[in-house]
């Protein structure tokens, strides 16, 4: 499969990059690990491709103003090996290690991971393949080929978002008209067809992710189920964070965020049941049960939704048990 034709720009600064976005049908390329596949399959046929590759000002990990700040072009390899990240937020390094495979981590960026398109077995296919079917809703057709509804159910499968959402991270978007800050939660639209504010025709560039430093006191982890030990997207993933009092039992704050099982990274309400409580095995089970009931996976991949839900529940049970340092 060959790439379609497009104009390619690689400006060295953000300032030079931004005007190129207004040229009409443009796409941003960071590591390209997701976009190149989409281009070869003609899922995307932009007139212009804007590469952020040469913009060195977007590649950094620093502590500043009570935040850990990470530039959008920082690779996952850099994140997983960064001493700062491993000291302050080891769960973030852990999440980076769980993305795709070590080779891809060297190329993939955190910005690209957050902007990752949603996936579905009817959508992520070649041009030839898609000729055999009606066009799916996400690709511009009338109906979803999974649910047969006028809606898209493709699932968000990024591994970095859950733990960042659990810590209430925010992001910076640079646009021709100026720079704005927004919470990561706002950034995701939970619309499978256009999963984030910069999807489709991007009007800006995601430049930075910020994690509030106080969250480093929380016990956190990212846990993922996949078919094989590497390469595979999550069939379910959970970002878990709990704020335990010094006794290590009483829970003062909690977050559970799911990925791979819905239109975006899902912040689940079940976490609220942990707050103000002493964490016990029983409580964990009931929270996990409730969390699993909040997700509504659709058969967008090889694995059936029933198994995804069951597996997600076990992820939450095992993860929380681990964080609360309870015995299995």
């Amino acid at each position: 499969m060959r790439l379609p034709e497009f104009d390619f720009y690689e400006p060295p600064t953000l300032q030079e990059a931004l005007p190129l976005l207004t040229s009409g049908n443009a796409r941003i390329i960071a590591g390209g690990t997701d976009l190149i596949v989409a281009l070869k399959r003609r899922l995307e046929t932009p007139a212009v491709i804007l590469s952020l590759h040469k913009i060195k000002e977007l590649d950094y990990i620093v502590q500043d103003e009570g935040y850990l700040k990470i530039g959008a072009m920082t690779t996952l390899k850099k994140i997983k090996t960064s001493p700062t990240v491993n000291r302050l937020f080891p769960a973030l390094a852990q999440a980076a290690r769980e993305v795709a495979s070590p080779i891809l981590q060297g190329q993939a960026t955190i910005g690209g991971n957050l902007c990752l398109n949603t996936r579905c077995r009817y959508y992520n296919q070649s041009e030839f393949w898609r000729q055999s079917q009606q066009t799916c809703y996400k690709a511009g057709g009338e109906k979803c080929l999974v649910t047969h509804k006028q809606d898209c159910s493709a699932s968000f499968s990024g591994d970095m978002a859950p733990i960042l959402l659990a810590w209430e991270a925010d992001i910076t978007i640079a646009a021709p008209e100026g720079t704005k800050q927004m919470s990561l939660r706002e950034f995701f639209t939970y619309n499978s067809k256009i999963p984030n504010q910069l999807a489709a025709n991007p009007k800006g560039i995601l430049t930075e992710v910020r994690i509030p430093l106080e969250k480093k006191e929380w016990s956190s982890l990212y846990t993922k189920a996949r078919l094989r030990g590497s390469i595979d997207f999550p069939l379910a993933g959970a970002g878990l964070a709990v704020d335990l009092d010094p006794s290590g039992r009483l829970c003062r704050g909690a977050a559970i965020v799911a990925t791979g099982v819905g239109p975006g990274p899902l912040v689940l309400e079940a976490a609220g049941d942990l707050v103000g409580q002493e964490i016990t095995g029983e409580l964990i089970k009931s929270v996990a049960q409730k969390a699993a009931a909040e997700i509504h996976p659709v058969r967008t991949g090889r694995i059936g939704p029933r198994y995804q839900r069951a597996r997600f529940k076990t992820l939450v049970i095992d993860g929380l048990t681990n964080l609360a340092e309870l015995e299995d």
């Binding site: 077995r121 296919q125 070649s126 393949w129 055999s132 079917q133 078919l227 094989r228 030990g229 590497s230 390469i231 595979d232 997207f233 090889r302």
Partner: peptide, 23 residues
Amino acid sequence: IVLENGQLFSSNFLDYKLPLATE
């Protein structure tokens, strides 16, 4: 080889699951 109505759903090395070193 995952097929539905004769159509192949496993035509690349992400969707066709070969065992890896990890397995």
